[in-house]
Design a protein around this nucleic acid. Structure first.
Length: 246
DNA sequence: AACCGGAGCAACCGCTGCGCA
DNA sequence: ATGCGCAGCGGTTGCTCCGGT
């Protein structure tokens, strides 16, 4: 007789996570912490198995995740670690704070492997042949080598006075044609979100302002179609009431 | 405009190792 | 010592997007 499944899969949802599910999981973890993945979905009101919740949190929702393309330095490090450790992705990932094993594994399989193969086939130049991607990125972000390095700045509203800063945050995000990529409210009410829809952000901020007299706000924004990332970051840094924190 | 193929990546599956009774 | 249940890990799958024809 085989091993019992990790959970009763009948009636459980599979496939891509919705924003609502993300929100439920995140809120639950932030309020209760991580104790038992198996029972978590039930208490969080999710029709998912614990394994799926764990994966979603680790690979996507965790607030300390570093998003964006891998730098040349990171790639070199991955190659070096891979020659020493082999396919032990979690071990490799432990050398890169904010990166997940899944992310590194995918990057290895889709980019690095190919790059190394091309290098092997092109020993004279010792240069990667596929420069297409680099060129494309350079065209999109002429002032930035790595879009996310520049964009993932953090902004903080100190001693926010309820709705004032809440509106400020939302208006600024909307006027700058941005999507919220990460929001972190601290103090007595805590919530985080990644790729949160504007409507949901409003609700979260509303809840926050109801449950505490003052709160601080930390977040990062990612511009949509901004021609100059640096310019955009500069404009955010000048935002009254928001302190740019390194 | 429609189709196709490749790239990228999120999510799943099944195995392993560990802690505990 | 053994078996069970769990979290974690690595391989794989399948969906989405995008560029080329």
């Amino acid at each position: 007789m085989g091993r019992q499944p990790c959970c009763d899969k009948i009636g459980l949802k599979r496939g891509p996570w919705t924003i609502e599910e993300d929100h439920k999981l995140m809120t639950f973890i932030l309020n209760n912490g991580i104790q038992c993945w198996r029972t978590m979905p039930k208490f969080a009101g999710l029709l998912r198995c614990g394994k799926s919740c764990r994966l979603r949190w680790i690979n996507y929702l965790r607030p300390d995740l570093k998003r964006g393309a891998f730098s040349e330095i990171e790639e070199d490090q991955i190659i070096e670690l891979h020659t020493r450790l082999g396919n032990r992705w979690s071990k490799i990932a432990s050398h890169f704070p904010g990166r997940t094993d899944n992310e590194i594994k995918n990057h290895w399989n889709t980019k690095i492997k190919k790059k190394l193969r091309l290098l092997e086939n092109n020993p004279i130049t010792q240069q990667p042949l596929d420069k297409k991607q680099d060129k494309k990125e350079l065209e999109m972000y002429p002032n930035s080598q790595n879009e996310h390095e520049k964009v993932n700045g953090k902004f903080q509203v100190l001693e926010g006075s309820k709705g004032d800063h809440r509106n400020e945050v939302v208006e600024k995000a909307m006027s700058s044609q941005s999507e919220i990529s990460s929001v972190h409210l601290i103090n007595s009410y805590e919530i985080m979100s990644r790729n949160m829809e504007m409507e949901m952000l409003m609700t979260s901020l509303e809840n926050a302002s109801q449950t505490c007299s003052s709160f601080s706000f930390q977040g990062s924004f990612r511009p949509i179609g901004s021609s100059s990332v640096e310019q955009w970051v500069q404009s955010m840094m000048c935002w009254d009431g928001i302190n740019y924190i390194d």
